[in-house]
């Protein structure tokens, strides 16, 4: 109905998404269902999964930290600082899990394997910025972007957990997935509060 209304008003390229948002298979993201998961399915060893996950967490943490330095709103700074700090906990947990599995606590070696350029959703920062066309001057767009990334991360960890054969490894991934869900909710609340302020 909205599409027809638009088409009737000069929007010649209006396209209806049949089935609406419910039919959309990517969770708050452009990428197909399998995007990002490839990172994990291509990696058969739990240790490789942990290394990749660690790099993803670091990527998101970098994003939050850079946003903290740019943000003007105290509320945004507070929330992003908090979220960046939580990524430290996630990284610690991932390294401990790596140590448990391998018996090696050589962090340098671990870090050397890490791919810093990756964000949680499986795309590089540049790809993300380009893909989302995020206006970094706009707080709601930045939060929206963070939500998209956390949404991807949640999805990624959930599915990696489902495929994990080692029970403890599965538990670790599930715990992180649960925390990503909390992040997402927290960002949603921040978005509501910011939008509420803007709407007066």
């Amino acid at each position: 109905m909205a599409t027809q209304q638009l088409a009737g008003n000069g929007f010649t390229n209006a396209i209806n998404l049949s089935g609406g948002f419910k039919a959309w298979t990517g969770q708050s993201a452009f990428d197909g269902e399998e995007d990002g998961l490839e990172l994990f399915t291509d990696l058969s060893k739990p240790t490789d999964v942990l290394i990749m996950a660690y790099s993803l967490e670091e990527g998101l943490q970098d994003f939050y930290n850079s946003m903290v330095s740019r943000a003007e709103s105290e509320e945004v700074i507070k929330v992003f600082t908090h979220l960046a700090a939580i990524e430290d906990l996630h990284k610690d947990r991932l390294f401990k899990e790596y140590t448990r599995i391998t018996g090696s606590d050589d962090k340098e070696k671990f870090l050397a394997k890490m791919q810093k350029q990756m964000l949680e959703g499986g795309l590089t920062t540049e790809e993300y910025l380009a893909r989302f066309g995020t206006d970094l001057e706009r707080v709601d767009e930045v939060i929206g972007m963070a939500m998209s990334i956390e949404g991807q991360a949640l999805d990624l960890y959930s599915r990696a957990a489902q495929r994990a054969e080692d029970a403890d490894n599965k538990t670790t991934l599930e715990k992180i997935a649960a925390e990503e869900k909390t992040h997402l909710e927290r960002l949603g609340e921040l978005m509501d509060s910011i939008l509420g302020e803007n709407d007066g």
């Binding site: 599409t3 027809q4 209304q5 638009l6 088409a7 009737g8 008003n9 390229n13 209006a14 396209i15 209806n16 998404l17 049949s18 089935g19 039919a23 959309w24 298979t25 990517g26 452009f30 197909g32």
Partner: peptide, 22 residues
Amino acid sequence: RWKQFFTPAKSMNSAEAKQLLQ
């Protein structure tokens, strides 16, 4: 605008829409 009721609108399923965005 009555016109809107007679204007055909294109439709895409989820997979086609994703392709469009990509």
